[in-house]
């Protein structure tokens, strides 16, 4: 008898509590606004915390064809600054070594230039324009930003005993693996006036290079 009374009492009390619980539920939810609003502290935007990456520093290697003096391994460094999403300025320095002219090869023991005069150093300052921004896809999961750019500028070439005013034009294709790291393939045409082989003429030196650069 006692258990029956207990059973009735408990059943009633459960049914009475249930509506109360249901009423309390919304009130409890309203006290926890963090579920809806993200936890944002009232702070102003501090620009110093944002990493700006407008500078580029890099190294490159390639092949430089020195007019009349054969093709040579070339290496160098490049510093760039991005003025806008399209425009940039860059400075290059490159090192190579002139080979023998065909005359030297045919004549045997004739040396037109000393060893130090065969050292080829060029440096320049260029303006560049990113012409075709795009994306390259590597498999279904990876997309890399790319761009095709044109450059033109002027500088100097120290070769064959003199430092010569040199203009250069070129283009390149750059692939950004991350926002900070890029590889590029480029071609540059270097032009200067030279009279080492008699009459003064304009030498056209073509450089094909690949480079690695880091944005900072």
């Amino acid at each position: 008898m006692e258990t029956r009374t207990q059973h009735l009492f408990l059943t009633l009390s459960r049914r009475a509590w249930l509506p109360l619980l249901l009423c309390a539920a919304p009130a409890w939810a309203a006290e926890e606004p963090t579920l809806i609003e993200p936890d944002v502290r009232p702070v102003a935007v501090d620009e110093a915390l944002i990493d700006t990456e407008n500078f580029e520093v890099g190294a490159f290697t390639g092949v430089l064809n020195i007019e009349d003096f054969g093709s040579s391994f070339v290496y160098g460094a490049r510093l760039g600054y991005n003025l806008s999403e399209s425009l940039f300025v860059e400075s290059n320095i490159g090192f190579a070594e002139g080979g023998e002219t065909s005359f030297e090869q045919l004549a045997g023991d004739v040396e037109l230039l000393t060893d130090s005069e065969r050292e080829y150093v060029y440096y320049n300052l260029n303006f560049g324009y990113r012409l075709l921004p795009g994306e390259a896809f590597f498999g279904p999961d990876h997309a890399f930003n790319t761009n095709f750019y044109l450059v033109a500028g002027a500088g100097a070439t120290d070769f064959a005993g003199d430092n010569r005013f040199t203009t250069n034009v070129g283009f390149g294709y750059q692939v950004l693996f991350t926002d900070s790291l890029a590889v590029e393939l480029g071609v540059r045409e270097h032009m200067y006036k030279i009279d080492v082989l008699g009459d003064e003429k304009t030498a056209f030196n073509t450089e094909i290079r690949c480079g690695l650069s880091v944005f900072f």
Binding site: L112, L113, S116, D195, G198
Partner: peptide, 19 residues
């Protein structure tokens, strides 16, 4: 061209190396 250049560059190669 090469012949005339040869004379020219003999004088050139006697210049002191300053690099």
């Amino acid at each position: 061209d090469i012949d005339s250049g040869f004379d020219n560059s003999v004088a050139l190669s006697t210049a002191p190396d300053s690099k």
